[in-house]
Structure formats: C-alpha cells, structure tokens
C-alpha cells in the first residue's frame, strides 16, 4: 500500500553470502558473509550515505538492491512491496525504477559502442515504442541534462575524460526515468576538482527530478556533504546510523571515529 508515509525503500535483516565452491560439481565449501544482517530505510527524495572501508560490503548492498546479486536472506521492500526474491521477469518493472551509477568510469561504458548506442539501449528496453529520431532527441536531451553536448553522442567512450564518462553513466541511468539511484562511489575515481562537479550535478538532478539516492563512499567527507542520513558499515554490518550532522559531531562507534580521523580537518 504505497503512500506518502511509506518509505521508498525498507531493508530488513538483509544477508548476502557468497558461496566458496570447489570441485567438478561446484560443491559448497564455505561462504563469504559480504552483507550480514543489515537493516535501514530510505525516505523518498532523500539521500542516504553509506560509508565504510573497501571490502566492507557496500557495493554488495547496492547490487543486492538492484538485483545484480541475489540476496541470501532478509527482505527488501520497495514502495511497500517485497521485491527480495522476485524472479527476473517479475523484477523487470523495477529495472525501470531503480538504477545504478558505477565507481569506475573507465569500465562502465562499453568501449565498442557510441555514446548514443550506450544511452539508447536503456530507451530501447523500456520505451520500445520510440523511433530512432525520438531516441536521438531524447539522448540529446539527456546529455544536456548532465552537462554534455548533443554532438557528443556519436563519439566513443575513449574520447572522454573520467568526469565526462561519469556524466554519460549518469545520463544512461536517467534514461529510464528512475526514482531511485544507487550511486556506488561515483566520485572515488575522479580528481578532487571534478568530484565536486559530479556531486553538485547529482544534487541538482535530485532537486529537479525528485530522485532518491543511496550514495556509497569510502570517505566520510564526501558523504557528509550530500547525505541526509548516514550509515557506517564495517565487515558486512552497519555499525552506526545517524544524521550526517550527528555522525560528524558526535560519533558513537569506535570504527566511525577512526573513519572520521581519516578525514582531513580544515
């Protein structure tokens, strides 16, 4: 029963364990508990930051939300509906609502496709009625939205800088007109000067399109700036959850304190 009071996303006791297999028949000999019993909610139109060291399980949470990995247990409710164990065909409508932006701008665009083809793929899947002309017009519009020019669409990814590629990745995610975007360390691989531009772009888009973000980072400084609420993650578990201000001013968990110490003080 979706209403304005239902959070857009509710995650309860989410577990993602990766089997360690061996032998001819892929016998299971152990598991990596990448995400272990994690709960949080994200309100519509807000940004929740997710911080933690590399390997703490942040990407895995993001991928579980968008079903790039299968959850092992727990529940994920989107707009009040349980989507945890939907089959791929049942999950398909959510592929139009939930999108992802990747950390590595150099590998997130297929080097063999033009920018038009990369962004147009999203349109072909979710707006099959669109003709070629309409798609070109829409791609041009999307490129404008992320601060690129329409004439960029017939070029290949290698002709762009890291920041520009990240913008293209954002345009691809926006193409399906999503409500919720998992931003998996979208600025970690970029120069500091470019980082601010991309963060500002994401904030502008959020305002304009009413987007909801899960913003993943390994460094509290970036997250603090953009997030309404912050989750701190360590070894597959959430060790602290509070508003950005509270985390910054009054960290409770020793791990959070260590993360904070790593942030350069001005």
């Amino acid at each position: 029963m979706p209403s304005t009071t239902t959070p857009l996303l509710q995650v309860e006791n989410l577990k993602v364990h990766f089997p360690i297999t061996a032998g001819l028949l892929q016998r299971r000999v152990g598991e990596v508990k990448a995400v272990d019993d994690v709960s949080f909610t994200i309100e519509r139109g807000t940004t929740v930051g997710l911080v933690g060291e590399s390997g703490s399980g942040k990407t895995t949470i993001g991928r579980a939300l968008i079903r790039l990995v299968n959850p092992t247990g727990g529940t994920i409710r989107y707009n009040g509906k349980d989507i945890t164990f939907l089959r791929e065909s049942q999950f398909r409508p959510y592929r139009k609502k939930i999108q992802i932006i990747f950390q590595d701008p150099y590998n997130s665009l297929n080097p063999r496709l033009t920018i038009f083809k990369i962004i147009s793929e999203a349109l072909e899947i979710h707006f099959p009625a669109m003709g070629l002309e309409q798609r070109r017009a829409r791609v041009a519009e999307l490129l404008g939205k992320v601060g690129l020019k329409p004439e960029h669409m017939d070029r290949y990814p290698h002709e762009f800088s890291g920041g520009q590629r990240q913008r293209i990745g954002i345009a691809r995610a926006l193409a399906v007109e999503p409500e919720f975007i998992v931003c998996d360390e979208p600025v970690s691989a970029l120069d500091v000067s470019v980082q601010a531009q991309i963060v500002n772009l994401l904030q502008d888009l959020q305002e304009e399109l009413g987007l909801t973000y899960l913003f993943i980072a390994h460094d509290l400084a970036v997250v603090e700036h953009i997030s309404d609420f912050v989750l701190v993650m360590n070894q597959g578990k959430i060790v602290e959850a509070a508003t950005a201000d509270a985390i910054y001013q009054n960290p409770q968990d020793p791990y959070t304190k260590r993360l904070l110490d790593a942030v350069p003080k001005i």
Binding site: L68, K96, N107, S108, L109, L113, E121
Partner: peptide, 20 residues
C-alpha cells in the same frame, strides 16, 4: 566489467548482452 552490470541493471537479456 561494470558495463555488463549496467546492461543487466537496465534489464537487458543474457543473449543480447553476450551478443552486443
């Protein structure tokens, strides 16, 4: 590579992903 994940996240089918 993330561009494969991106295609999966868009709902692209496995055969098209392999092919394209």
């Amino acid at each position: 590579r993330p561009f494969i994940y991106a295609a999966e996240a868009l709902g692209q089918g496995p055969v098209t992903i392999l092919w394209k």
